[in-house]
Amino acid sequence: MLVIFFTIVLTIAAYWFSRYLFLRFGSPLLNIVIISTAIVIITLVTLGIPYETYAIGGDIMTFLLGPATVALAVPLYKNRPLLKKYGLAIVVGISAGSLVSVVTAVAITMCGGLPREVIISIASKSVTIPFAVEISRIAGGNPALAAAFVVATGTFGSVLGRDLLTWLKITDPVARGLSLGTVSHGQGTAMALMEGEQQGAMAGMAMALAGVLTSAIAPFFLPLIVK
């Protein structure tokens, strides 16, 4: 019981510390999730606390993730004029991006001969964690692994995404925001917000819609192609 309490306090402390570092120095390399996770894992391993014990407190801590996802409807609702104005570009762009993202990751890992559980878990790598966790649970993947791939993709996108888009000659602010949100979800949205308000609003919308689209399609589609 005391151990569970300790793991919760540890996670909150690690989060506050990483968040402080990020806000203080503002570098995308100071990724909040990676630093917090590293602190927690190193502490658990040092003290010999198994993941199974940590997971009890983990369930308590992630209790509010569901309502947090529902809350994504709020920025979406606030930006509904943009949704209407760029409707076609938004829907086509995000659908194409989500599809390509799933297909690329699944194709590469299938060719590489990875276990089925891993392939299904990597499929949802571009959608924000609450969606990815649900998708992998429904489709037969592993939620923790799915979450890890999401964080890896988000980190890649937030560190290199903006330079990459410039290099690919994607200069339109709407297009940049949508790319960042579709591919690297919340972490990409944070970077898009740093670039500009329009990019940020577009990225937030892309994150939400990519999550919804992938959640609606992936659970049907994955069991058919990944044997």
Binding site: S101, T104, V118, I122, F156, G157, D172
Partner: peptide, 24 residues
């Protein structure tokens, strides 16, 4: 896995950006 993460981000980055710019 690294290849899947990197290509799985670079290709859709380009696809979304290109498609949106085209329509826009």
């Amino acid at each position: 896995l690294a290849l899947a993460i990197v290509l799985g981000a670079v290709i859709p980055f380009f696809v979304v950006g290109y498609v949106v710019q085209l329509i826009h």
